[in-house]
Simulated scan of single mutants.
Amino acid sequence: MIEFIGVEKTYANGTIALQNINLTIDQGEFVAVIGLSGAGKSTLIRCINRMHDITGGQLNVDEVDVAKLKGKQIRRFRRRIGMIFQSFNLVTRTTVMKNVLVSFVPDLPLWRRWTGIFTKAHKIKALEALDKVGILDKAFIRVDQLSGGQQQRVALARTLAQNPDIILADEPIASLDPVTSRMVMDDFKKINKEMNISVIMNIHHVEIALEYADRIIGIRKGEVVFDGPTNKVTKDILGEIYGGNFDEIQSSFEENSAHV
Rank of each mutant, 00 (worst) to 15 (best):
V66I: 15
S103R: 04
D214P: 05
L168H: 05
F246E: 00
R113D: 05
Y212W: 00
I197Y: 14
V96T: 14
D107S: 13
S181H: 00
V233M: 04
A258S: 07
V7R: 05
A121L: 04
G244Q: 00
Q27F: 08
E223V: 12
T92A: 13
G228H: 05
I203M: 03
P172M: 02
V184P: 00
R142Q: 14
L44Y: 03
N13V: 05
F77Y: 15
G116A: 04
R46H: 10
K120Y: 03
L36E: 11
D227A: 08
D165N: 09
L160E: 02
T119S: 15
I200E: 13
G239S: 04
E211P: 11
N99E: 07
D53M: 08
Q86I: 14
D137R: 10
Q152W: 12
T180L: 07
D53I: 06
S198V: 13
D236F: 00
G116Y: 05
S257L: 12
V133M: 03
N20W: 08
N192I: 06
N99A: 06
G71L: 13
F226R: 08
E223M: 14
Y242M: 02
L176V: 10
I216Q: 11
D65F: 11
S37D: 09
M97G: 07
V133R: 04
I54P: 03
M183L: 13
F188Q: 07
Y212M: 04
R112T: 01
V260G: 02
I25Y: 05
S147M: 08
I84E: 00
N256F: 01
S37L: 04
V100G: 08
Q27Y: 09
A157V: 12
I217C: 01
W114V: 12
S251C: 03
K9P: 13
V105L: 11
N49E: 06
E8K: 12
K68R: 09
S257N: 08
I200Y: 10
D65P: 03
I219Q: 07
R80A: 15
A67H: 10
I84M: 11
V102A: 03
N245M: 00
Q86M: 10
G82C: 11
E211F: 01
R78A: 10
F253D: 00
R79L: 14
D227H: 07
F118W: 09
T94F: 06
M83A: 12
L136C: 01
K123W: 01
V224S: 05
A258F: 01
Q86Y: 01
K41H: 02
G40W: 12
F246P: 02
R113A: 10
N196V: 05
G222S: 07
V33Q: 11
G40Y: 12
D65N: 15
A39E: 06
L130P: 10
N13D: 15
L130F: 05
V66N: 09
P164H: 14
S42T: 15
I208K: 00
V102H: 02
G35Y: 12
A129C: 09
V66Y: 08
K132G: 06
E8F: 13
L90S: 06
I241Y: 01
D214A: 07
R113W: 02
K190G: 06
A12K: 12
A155D: 13
I200R: 10
L59R: 06
R93C: 02
M183D: 13
I2A: 12
R46N: 13
H52N: 15
V96Q: 03
N245D: 08
N22T: 14
K9C: 14
L23C: 11
N256A: 07
V184N: 04
G148E: 06
I167L: 09
R158F: 03
K193Q: 15
G239A: 06
